[in-house]
Design a binder for these strands. Structure first.
Length: 487
DNA sequence: CCCATCACG
DNA sequence: ACGTACGTGATGGGC
């Protein structure tokens, strides 16, 4: 049940929680350097003991929660200190630890037979491809070694090499894709890579884990304090990176099922980060587009290229919209779109001319980050940057991270609020529903079949009304018997 | 233990 | 002159 907590720390903390008075505990935590915010504790001493007291209420119930709460508390106080930090800890992050605990305990059902069948097919493909590749190259080597592969491709076969890595030639997907017409072995390698990834990262581990459990369910650990932006992460196994993009990858999703008599519901926020961009920047074109329910990428294309060209350039606009949130540069945009850096530069310049309030808003974030040393999300979570001691290259990276953190972190704030509200709803009303997974902007539920539609509408309603922004929050919802049907 | 690679949002 | 699109975790090779 305790999956990520350090067990020594946990045992110590739980024991203390049961046997010590509050004052003793908080002093003891400090003495043992269990709380690493000694510097801020002078002004925050009351806050600290109040917070610990609250955390300890849960200790008898479940030591794991205590640990998560403690972890969150430390994180929050380190991040900000003072009342604002504790407000967020108490109002959002502490209840969220309980929400996550419920999800971790619940797990998700896996149909092992689906995976076993797929495993046989993939194993056969891998064996065939291995044989073909070795004979095509005229030599036997380890296909999983980029080092050995690089030597074969770029020395033995004499293909023209592009970029290099620290340790030799790059053989990543982008490189291989550029060479796919140069030699018959390249398409085989690309296929091999896809099959091997599925086999080693998903098929085998998921079968092993599901066989551990009497109900064939698998249980992830959600890390609440592991990211720089406030997002969750998921590990052992990571259920936030189950394949979705290719037909083969979707076979993995088909193995995540609703048990008999139940359904899975998937609800994801549509373009939540772009909606936050519209909200924060107050740009009239963006705000209007969302308020009128228009296709945001098409509207961007119209604004950038005019009505006549918009339809054929919608994809460019889409890439630019995404790139914006990452602080894109001309180099990467040109690589992604397959255009010259000059063209990319022009598109970026035109974007900021077309959306001046976005440009102003972005520079505002960067100015704030440089002056204050941090940026804040919608719910005032902070991320700190040390611009002062940074090299020019690092400064540029910090600028991109500052901007991105506002959107990624604020989106994370929103879905945390929704999850807490839905979790409370499920518990207090005794709904025949369980929240199973969060994948950043998406929630997966398992519910009784007969109430699936009704519950789904209620969850959608919570998610879309969780906060009132300058633009509506929209979601898309799907009900199915397996995860593969939720897109 | 680091690197390269690749899966996701 | 030159280089940077953000945030994660798992795997296998190789030192």
């Amino acid at each position: 049940m305790v999956r990520y907590a350090d067990t020594m720390v946990l045992a110590w903390l739980t024991d203390s929680a049961r046997s010590l008075s509050m004052d003793n505990l908080s002093q003891s935590l400090l003495n043992h350097e269990m709380i690493h915010f000694k510097d801020t504790v002078k002004k925050g001493e009351n806050f600290a003991s109040v917070a610990i007291e609250d955390a300890c209420k849960y200790a008898g119930e479940d030591a794991y929660i205590t640990f998560q709460l403690y972890d969150v508390l430390r994180e929050q106080l380190l991040l900000k200190g003072g009342q604002e930090a504790l407000d967020e800890a108490f109002n959002v992050e502490f209840p969220f630890a309980i929400t996550l605990l419920g999800m971790e305990k619940e797990g998700i059902a896996v149909d092992t037979a689906v995976l076993e069948l797929f495993k046989k097919e993939v194993a056969l493909e891998i064996a065939t491809l291995t044989e073909q590749i070795h004979s095509t190259c005229g030599t036997v080597f380890n296909l999983n070694s980029p080092k050995q592969l690089g030597v074969i491709l770029f020395e033995t076969l004499g293909l023209a090499h592009g970029k290099k890595t620290k340790t030799g030639y790059s053989t990543d997907e982008q490189v291989l894709d550029g060479l796919k017409d140069e030699h018959a072995v390249i398409p085989m390698l690309l296929q091999y890579r896809e099959y091997h990834k599925l086999y080693s990262t998903y098929i085998e581990p998921l079968i092993a884990l599901s066989q551990n459990d009497p109900a064939s369910r698998i249980y992830t650990s959600f890390i609440q304090t592991g990211t720089a932006t406030g997002r969750l992460s998921s590990k052992n196994p990571n259920l936030q990176n189950i394949p979705v993009k290719t037909a083969l990858g979707m076979r993995i999703r088909e193995a995540f099922v609703a048990p008999k008599g139940k359904k899975l519901i998937g609800i994801d926020y549509s373009q939540i980060e772009l909606r936050l961009l519209a909200h924060f920047s107050e740009d009239s074109v963006l705000v209007n587009a969302f308020n009128e329910g228009h296709d945001i990428h098409m509207q961007t294309a119209i604004a950038l290229f005019g009505e006549a060209e918009a339809a054929q350039k919608r994809n460019i606009a889409k890439t630019v919209n995404f790139g914006l949130l990452y602080g894109m540069g001309q180099k990467k945009l040109s690589d992604t779109l397959g255009i010259t850096t000059k063209e990319a530069k022009e598109i970026i310049e035109r974007y900021f001319e077309t959306f001046p309030s976005v440009k102003g808003y972005f520079s505002g974030i960067v100015v704030h980050a440089k002056e204050m040393g941090y940026v804040e999300t919608l719910l005032h979570r902070r991320r700190y940057f040390d611009f002062a001691s940074a090299t020019p290259m690092l400064k540029a990276a910090y600028e991109r991270e500052s901007v991105n953190t506002v959107f990624q972190g604020s989106a994370s704030d929103l879905i945390k609020l929704s999850m807490n509200k839905i979790d409370t709803m499920i518990r207090t009303e005794g709904l025949r529903a369980r929240m199973l997974l969060q994948i950043h902007d998406e929630l997966i539920f398992e519910v009784d079949e007969d109430v699936a539609e009704v519950y789904a509408s209620r969850f959608v309603e919570v998610m879309e009304s969780i906060l009132e922004l300058r633009v509506p929050l929209k979601t898309s919802m799907h009900i199915g018997n397996h995860w593969g049907e939720l897109k």
